[in-house]
Amino acid sequence: MLSPRQPAQLFVKDHMNSEEAKFLLHTRSLELGDPEDLRMAEALEQTRRDPELLAWFNQQRALDAALHDKLQHVRVPAGLVEKILAGREARIEPRRNRHLMPLALAASIVFLISLAVFVVGRSNPPTTRFAAMQAEMALFLREFPKLDLATDRLPEVREWLARQHSLTQGSLPKALERFPGIGCRTVEWEGRKLALVCFMVEGQVVHLFVIPRSAFPDAALSSTPVLAKVGPQNTASWSNRDNLYFVVTQAGEALLQKYLLAMP
């Protein structure tokens, strides 16, 4: 806050009127520092000559500060950071040497033509929303995520699944139920809510997504887990009548083979 002081030290021929000063002071940065320019300095000096203007300015600054503070309370959607980080990893392309661009372009055209011929000859395109989700979640789980519920008790996890995702008893695969849990959380992806349950299997973290089949009608999964490497992660995907299952772990593939491929 400013307070009246001695008359201005600044040399000015004519004082600006209070309306002009108000107009300038409206634009005074929230971060108090040196006046932005000579006219702002003059407007600030005017507040020292005009108590009414000073009162208005102090009130305005308080209002500005309150608005600034209040804006910091505007809710930001959960998971936005993860989406931004996952999006970058998924979409960023390596820089290319500009001199090689024409060659790269020609090669791309040849590749695209070959790809088109290949794709046209196939009944199922290789990319689905489920596959896109798998790629993003594998990146997302490179680091252990924050959990909505941290517990090693599976009854609590089951209750959470029922409450948050309307998933019934028996939704968790028996192959993983024998291991202690770490916790669970909801991950939002393209408007879908995915249930994530984390287990500790032989000292390794194993992440399990349980997703209703209706969330990804394009996912063509069998009841036998299919193992695949996605980036640095080993994954397994399968389905039953009601749900899709997607497991992500940094543990070796042998762990998934040992427990998931032996499922009844």
Partner: peptide, 16 residues
Amino acid sequence: EATAERVHEMDAHVLM
């Protein structure tokens, strides 16, 4: 009048 005190009391989504 829109004052700092009133703004402090209002919901952030109303401000938005």
